[in-house]
């Protein structure tokens, strides 16, 4: 089997697998399975990237997504009413229009991909693409790369601030209540002053 044929076969397997797995994400009843089908889709795309000689990017994608999808699965189990998928379940809204939007965007983008005339300049150099990327990241594009780094730092600080339980004025869920029965009702009562809270707690625990 020649090399290009082997690459073609591998491409059909991985790319087809990625699309099928992506479709199954929204067709399975189990939250963990949905997260891991998405991971399978990323694995397929990562493999196609490796076939395209972007080895580092493909491997880093797998590295990143394996962790992220596991966290996603844990989140699903934490927050969803039917985590294990024991019952059939569909939790969708505006299903028809969503289907149309998905199809239209697929058709439009695929049309562009097929019809548009992209320059046919395949990669020719034998240089290591990872080394090229490294030189680019720490050379001409260092400012862009550093901006990405600072953005990630800001994200870390921001998401900890949003998610942390302890706020500056007490616990974050202080003053929160059960979800209202009427969608228009006030979602949560006003928080009580902190001083009284301490007294209440003392009485309950005492």
């Amino acid at each position: 089997m020649s090399r290009s044929l082997a690459v073609d076969v591998a491409f059909v397997l991985f790319a087809g697998g990625a699309v099928v797995a992506a479709w199954l994400v929204f067709r399975t009843d189990s939250m963990v399975r949905a997260a891991y089908w998405l991971l399978a889709s990323f694995l397929g795309v990562g493999a196609v990237m490796v076939l395209l000689h972007a080895r580092f990017l493909g491997l880093v994608l797998v590295l990143m997504m394996a962790g992220e999808m596991t966290i996603m699965a844990v989140f699903m189990v934490m927050f969803m009413m039917n985590p294990a998928g024991l019952n059939p379940m569909t939790m969708v809204h505006q299903h028809g229009s969503a289907k149309v939007a998905g199809l239209v965007s697929f058709a439009g983008l695929a049309l562009v991909g097929i019809v548009a005339e992209f320059p046919d300049r395949p990669r020719t150099s034998d240089a290591d693409p990872t080394a090229e990327l490294g030189v680019e990241l720490l050379g001409d594009s260092m400012l862009i790369f550093e901006t990405a780094g600072v953005t990630l730092l800001a994200t870390m600080i921001g998401s900890i601030a949003v998610a942390s339980k302890r706020g500056r004025f007490g616990d974050a869920e202080e003053g929160s209540g059960p979800p209202p029965l009427e969608p228009t009702a006030r979602p949560a009562p006003e928080p009580e002053p902190a001083m009284e809270d301490h007294d209440h707690e003392g009485m309950h625990h005492g």
Binding site: A15, A18, V19, A22, W23, V25, F26, M31, S41, V45, V48, M72, F75, M76, F79, M80, M91, V92, H93, Q94, H95, S97, A98, K99, A101, G102, L103, S105, F106, A107, G108, L109, A110, V112, G113, I114
Partner: peptide, 22 residues
Amino acid sequence: LVVSAALFGIGVYGALSQQTFV
């Protein structure tokens, strides 16, 4: 590009149709 369009289209469908944040 067709494969990437398919992934994008499925993503659009999912993001618009699902009710759960995750």
